[in-house]
Design a protein around this nucleic acid. Sequence first.
RNA 1: GCCCGAGUGGUGGAACUGGUAUACACGCACGACUUAAAAUCGUGUCCCUCUGGGAUGUGGGUUCGAUUCCCACCUCGGGCACCA
Length: 1115
Amino acid sequence: MKKAIKTPKKTVKKVTVYDPAKIEKKWQKKWTSSKLYKTTENKKKEKFYALDMFPYPSGEGLHVGHPKGYIATDVISRFQRMNGKSVLHPMGFDAFGLPAENYALKTKTNPADAVKKNVAYFKKQLEIIGLDYDWSREVNTTDPKYYKWTQWIFLQLLKKGLAYESYEPINWCPSCKTGLANEDIEDGRCERCSTLVEKKPLRQWVLRITDYAERLLNDLDLKDSSGKTLLDWPESIKELQRNWIGRSEGALVKFPIINDQGSSNSSEKKLGEVEVFTTRPDTLFGVTYVVLAPESHLTSELLASIQNKEEVEGYITRAKQETEIQRTDATKEKTGVQLKSVFVVNPANQEKVSVWISDYVLADYGTGAVMAVPAHDDRDWDFAKKYGLPIKTVITPLFTRAGEEDAWRPNEPEIKRPVVVCLVKHWSEDKYLFLRKKIVDKATVAIAGGIDGEDLIEAGKREIREESGYKNAKFIKHLGDPVYYRFYSVVGKQNRISDLKPLLFQLINDEREEISKEENEQHDSVWLSPNEIDEYLKGRPFNEIFWNRLNGKDQPYIHNGILINSEKSNGKDSESAKKEIVEFVRGKLVTKYKLRDWVFSRQRYWGEPMPIVHCQNCALKEYKNQAKITLNFYFKEIWEALKDGTKTVETRALNPDEPNRYFGNLALGDIIHCTFKTKKATEELLFRIKSKKIYKTFQELFDDKSTINKLSRKTYKSVIELEKSYAFTPDYVERIKKNGLIAWEIEPVTIAVPVPEKDLPVILPKVKSYEPTGTGESPLAAITKWVNTKCPSCKGKAKRETNTMPQWAGSSWYYLRYEDPKNKKQLVNPKTEKYWSSVDLYVGGAEHATRHLIYARFWHKFLYDTGVVSTVEPFKKLQHVGLVMGEDGRKMSKRFGNIINPDEVVKTYGADSLRVYEMFMGPFDQQIAWNTPSMVGSRRFIERVWKLKEKIAKNISDSDLKNIDRIVHKTTKKVTDDIETMRFNTAISSLMILVNEIEKSLSITKGQYEILLQLLAPFAPHATEELWAQLGNKKSIHISKWPEYNASLAVDNEVTIMVQVNSKIRGSFMAETNISKEDMEKKAQEVPEVKKWLENKKIVKIIVVPNRLVNLVVV
RNA sequence: GCCCGAGUGGUGGAACUGGUAUACACGCACGACUUAAAAUCGUGUCCCUCUGGGAUGUGGGUUCGAUUCCCACCUCGGGCACCA
């Protein structure tokens, strides 16, 4: 019969039922009213700053995946608080950006209102989970009090020359109608809407993040004074950032350009130089042509001097039409066009090589031009094969035999000798002759032998005859350049480097002679089919190369090796030859990065306005003498039309007084100086040419609503009048019909004047329609009242910058504002900053590795340089949350209908169960599928802890006391360690084990129970707080002192020692902890189950692992 | 193609530095309580040809001993991708 130990009937204690709904609400209220989690800078205490990646408050609210990271930081910050630290654990909202704007567009609301509503909902959702945020420190990126400082940082960047305006074509998403940064593109598509990204010429604000590339890269490995790595980040994320920054060391080398028409009378004309960037200057002697990017400025400059101008122009046009994704598809066949009659000279060997353009060369990396070495580069190889360009080998592979008896021995002398390698084809079948060695490694090898001053082919024939006996081999062909192979000659007792020269032979017939005794002792001849050869070639790389050459499958050799055909550098290894060759051709060693400058403006409404004013007057002063042409205007209407900003002007018609000065040779970006003469005054302005269109007639020009519809009707009329009247001689009309009318789209040349810091923030104005315009202009441009302003510098009329900042702006520094969120005078008070910085733990999704985390590091370093922050890196420890997938294993998304709402879960199971489950489901950083049925385990666990209260007794048996004490110490150690290392799942598992153990015993002390509650408190704050209070504690459990453990008490006093016989477990025995080695050996042999395995055997060895096992090796 | 990371019962997963593989939990089966169900509690639960043998994606290697270290391969996940 079992004893009724669970609930003795005599205890008529009132048993409260665990009702999470009730107690959770109760405690959340109490915590808020008592300001339990209010953060203070307590100089006496050590600080701990735990940070979550703040959420984007979308309309959908949270799903159960979101809180996973928040719960983790919550557990840790509660743990740190109990350990006596001053904890900063804040929360805020990253609410600018496209989703909020699109959501508002869809629901026809103002984004500001939508954000307000969503934030309120998010906060409510977060609150019911019982997170310990100090909401008095909440930040919101869309709050003018906050973005004032985002704008302030931008101004500091501008001041230091790290923000600049660029006119380079940028990535444009036609669906989101905005420009994008490199980081916002995935596979050539917009990261947000998956639309193909286009290139669009657009004025952009760009941040010079590349100036920080080196530091961003190097500081990933920053060490403190004791040599410990400063950034405790997952190695994978560091690697991701390293790849993204993409440092490569190489050299810039100049190739002089010459013009050679090919005819005998024309002399070679110098046309400047092509500068290329290469990481392999060691292959310079192997350059057989040079390739320019189609968009390269050099290409357009050379256009005038080439014969096939039209063909080249056609190629450039086609290249421009291709989308980014088509262009950068590495698998597509390479295309290109030669620039005929233009050549460059290889500075290494003065060889004249051809020049090509191809879209496999990127304009914006390196110099936009590459030297092609087809023998040692995959891309050049493909291109050269397609266009029949020469391939010149300058690096020969050097293979080193490793692992076997014949492995190359680094410290022994070596000799080099030429060796002929013979691939011998069968006289009738598709088989090849090989030798199977009888000695050393018994490998199958090709017939080969040293040649001593002999003719190569004759030496081959001789080797075939000597080694296989076949007499009539016919030479077929050479199999390309030699390969070096170094090994240890067991027979010759020395290192050898063979200069392997491959030849192909075929036997005419089977006539064979007797082979010598020595040869016969070494190997047999075998005939192998191609399949068998493929099999045996594994691990014989040089033979593989020869075999591939024979089958026409040869490939470029892109690795390091020994230089050949490289004049003075012959015989050097490629790594050491690099510097020498760069010096020889007077090149320059440089470092390049893949990282591009950060395109920082968006043509959308919902973002921080840039604190910039564009002033034309100031520009006039600055750039007047840079104008290419001066125009005089007399027409009032046109002046009216022009002065408003970007307009389309048909230049010829507008300049009747100077009919000969038309603008066919102006280029995009050129500056025009315009003088406007009205009756009253003369005004001057500068315009820049923005784009070009050609029309056949005026009518066509007028009909093109896209460009001309901004001109007033009066202007149309006056231009039409012109056509009818004096401006057009028949000759001129002819010319228009032939060449078309050129219409330039122009824009005013302005100077960007920063808004003075005292005038910040520049408030985002309310606007009726914030639909994106799609023209490259922000919707803000339509708000004339806001746009037209005074220039802070000259006080004249000026216009505001209408682009807004990208979503990443506000999130690049928000963690600093939490430290001092209400400061009106400073971004953050330096003293406060010093106390809290850096963030001790940063938790969030891995998807931010190459954007937010790089941008924030960049801004932080900049702020460090500016003296705003005191540390070089913002985040000391970074931890990634593994995604929570839907129950179907797919990403949680409305689309799949697999979203689990935490509110529902809390309703049925309680917040504590949700928290315990999320921490218990698996390793924190691993992706995992949600499984609601599994949640009952967590709920059961909390209920069991709840019921355990009944076991508290005053009189407790000594053995129980000691036993439970031991487990309590053990668990305390485990939970403490596991929280610190964020292995929450095993922390909870050990708590479960503790609970199981306690259940087995009759009773526990109040103290033991309290420790259990404290250990569980970070995970289940409500239930533990309630039980803690029920025990009579007056102060919150969450500010109680974290239990300490005694390591010696945490160790079991008895251990199970396993006994193995020949590494197989045969038995075990119990022993005191730290039993001596000798005793273990002795006791092991006495175990009955073990004894029978020892019968008639001799123990030859005993391996003892203290406190664990004994292994008896017997024979 | 290149660079990371991961593959363990029916499921999520555990295993310190090479030393009892499958802790903890879910599920399942059986039992107790109950008129019954739920809840709860208890017992069992890797496989097989079972005095023993075999299993940590596959195949090798190092070792007295490998989930753990090395080599090759397969699958999945993530990142980068014509970066010269």
